[in-house]
Amino acid sequence: MKSRSKVIMLIVASVILVVWSVLTIIPMYWMLIGSVQDTKSAASFIPKMIPDVLSVAPYERFFGKTNVMRWLFNSLLISTILTVTNVFLASLAGYAFAKLKFPGNKAVFWVLLSTMMIPAQVTLIPLYILMIDVFDLGNTYTAILLPGIVSVGNIFLMKQYMSSLPTSLIHAARIDACGEFGIFWKVILPMAKPGLAVLAIFTFVASWNDFFWPFLVTNSAEMRTIQVGLASFVYADTTDFGALMAGATVAALPMMILFFSLQRYFLQGITIGAVKG
C-alpha cells in the first residue's frame, strides 16, 4: 500500500512539474521563434510553434536601430557597477551586523529590515523628486545608480551568510595582529566566496532586467538601457514584434549564459542562511 501511494505521489508530482516546466518554457520559446519570423506571424495571437519560414530580418531591424550597442553598453556598465557596489557594501554591512559588537547593532538592523516591507512604488515618487529636482541628476548614470548602490535585501542575505562563518577565525585573526578591515578583507571575504557569487549573480540579473527606474530618470536615447530601449519598438499605432522579440532574445542571452554557467551557486544561494554551518 505504502509503495502504491508513493507511486501515485510521484506521478502527481511529475505531472505538476512537467506542466510547470512547459508554462515556464513556452514564453521563452515564443520569444525565440518570434525573433526569426516575419512581424505578422510573430504578432499572431496563437503563435505558430513551428515557423514556416525562418528569417534573420528581425535581428537586422533590431541591430539597425541607431543606439542598440550603446543600450547594451549602458546595461552592462550599470549592472557591473551595481554588482560591485552591492557585493562590497552588503558584505561589509552583513559582516558588521553578524559579527561585530556595537551599540544599536540589533536596532539598526531591524530598522533596515523594516524598510523592506515598504513597497517600492511608495518610495518611487520621493526618490524621483530627490534625484531629479533636489540633486538635479536627471538623465545621468548617477541617477540610475545611486538608489541601487546597496539594497537592504542584499545586506540581509549577507548577514545571514556571515552568521554561519565561525567566529573563532575572527578571534584568531585578531590575535594574529590583523586589523579589523584586514580581518574582513583577508579572512572573511575569501571564506564568503560562495555567498558573494550568489549575491553578484542576483544583483547583476536584477540590474540588467530593471526597466522602470532607468526609464523614469533618463530621457535621451543615449542614456537608455537595453530594457528601456526595447520599448522603442512599440510605436504609436503598431509594434514591431519581430524586432522586439529579437531584442528580447539578445537581452536575455547574457542572463541565460550567466545562469546556466553558475546555476550551482544559484541553487546553493536559495538555501543560504537556512542551514547553519
Binding site: S168, H171, A172, I175, D176, A177, G182, V187, P190, M191
Partner: peptide, 26 residues
Amino acid sequence: IAMVFQDYALYPHMTIRENLSFGLKN
C-alpha cells in the same frame, strides 16, 4: 599572547605555510 582554539580556527583558504606565517606577516 598566542591562542589555540577548540575548533583549530585555521584559515581554510590558506595553506599551512600561510596559516603559520599569517601572524608574523601582520
